[in-house]
Design a protein around this nucleic acid. Structure first.
Lengths: 221, 221
DNA sequence: GCGGCTTCTTAGCGCAATCTCAGAGCCAAG
DNA sequence: CTTGGCTCTGAGATTGCGCTAAGAAGCCGC
């Protein structure tokens, strides 16, 4: 595995920090800061995939760090570590802009699982496309009809629909579709076939023909 | 009467609360909280045998309270109260980590019966993950089918299912699964094999294939 | 140290998915 | 109305992915 994702870890307790960094380094390129000031400086200077911030820090406090980071319009997912049983900390922590929290003492596997979920959550979002009353999620290659019924698309069908969704108004020529969806085919007939497949699965509601020019998304009536 | 089991009751409607507390006090040492915030604070500070949480609460909502409690790794069985006819509430309630639910208005005997059942059956069972009508408890590596039948999973099977449960919608690639579930393997075929094992044990209801991409949790239709 | 259980590898089979092709259907211009 | 090009659609041929069985290697407990 070449480039591992960068992670910033702000924690003042050096005993905890040392152990945790060791574990984290198996999956991340870890920068560790022992104070809120150092951590904030790093967060503002470098790009990280994800951050782990202790709530209690000498000087600049964890919540303050997160607030400062958010004020700089950095949207990196942040997991906050809090001491056991301090409820108010948790609430203000999430309010301050943290995306998740974990109670100390924590299990390393739990920490790794949360971090994965956090990164996935951010990566996976925003991949929803609406076509009239239909919903299309390219990641799962699934199309939902207006009643919520699930229709599974194949890879090529999904790629084609994804392309059409990029510009709902635009009319895509066969060559345009061929060069992006299909690796390299000379026969433009393939496009017709896959448009046909899409229509068959969607009761002819999704794709519209523009004669002599190509295809585009079906207008929601 | 010596030491009665401790029960936490979170309910904002004071009329209902008063009556209910009176009944509950015959069998439990009851702490009552009128808001989600107060209830959460108590739940995190004290140990209870069982909790009863209203779905609708001013401020911090019932589901949010349960989620927060579970995130703090508190496995106390929780019974959620929901308003009449709100099916979605039921689903999100269970998803959030409640062990049972009861529709308001409820019968006091019914409530007491459910609480007894809850304490008998679900005491200290650990994390729970719901997959459609199936229940999976990673700590005991046990999968329960919709009828409650117990299926024991091996370590690797459990780790795989646990990973998939982290993000129910997400499609996990073979590499992604390999790097987290399997220590160090080059052959992606191992993933296929364990998916196969899971399916064999679960009558092919749990894991879904996304061709050429990977696997994800099977959606309850 | 033997037997059972778990883990992981390998390889063949089946089938879904991809793509080609050809005939039927449709539209528009003359 | 007729003609020619454009589009639709079903029927294969082929490829490669995923499923599965079977067995080797490793890890316990008895």
């Amino acid at each position: 595995m070449g480039a591992m994702p960068a992670l910033l870890f702000i924690e003042d307790d050096l005993a905890i920090a040392e152990m945790t960094v060791e574990v984290l380094q198996e999956s991340y390129t870890v920068d560790h800061a022992a104070t809120g000031e150092d951590g904030l400086a790093l967060a503002l200077r470098k790009h990280y995939e994800v951050m782990v911030v202790d709530r209690r820090l000498p000087g600049l406090d964890g919540v303050a760090v997160i607030e400062a980071v958010r004020r700089a319009r950095i949207t990196t997912p942040i997991l906050m570590l809090t001491a056991l049983g301090t409820v108010d900390d948790r609430v203000t922590g999430l309010d301050g802009g943290a995306n998740d929290y974990l109670v100390k003492p924590f299990d390393f596997d739990e920490l790794l699982a949360r971090l994965r979920a956090l990164r996935r959550g951010f990566a996976a979002e925003g991949r929803r496309r609406y076509i009239g009353d239909w919903l299309f999620t390219p990641d799962t290659r699934t199309l939902y009809d207006p009643t919520g019924f699930r229709i599974t698309l194949t890879d090529t069908e999904s790629a084609l629909l994804d392309l059409l969704c990029e510009s709902p108004e635009h009319v895509f020529s066969r060559e345009e579709i061929l060069s992006t969806v299909f690796s390299r085919t000379d026969t433009p007939g393939a496009v017709d076939t896959y448009v046909h497949y899409l229509r068959r699965k969607s009761c002819h509601e999704i794709v519209e023909t523009v004669r002599a020019r190509g295809y585009r998304l079906g207008d929601p009536v």
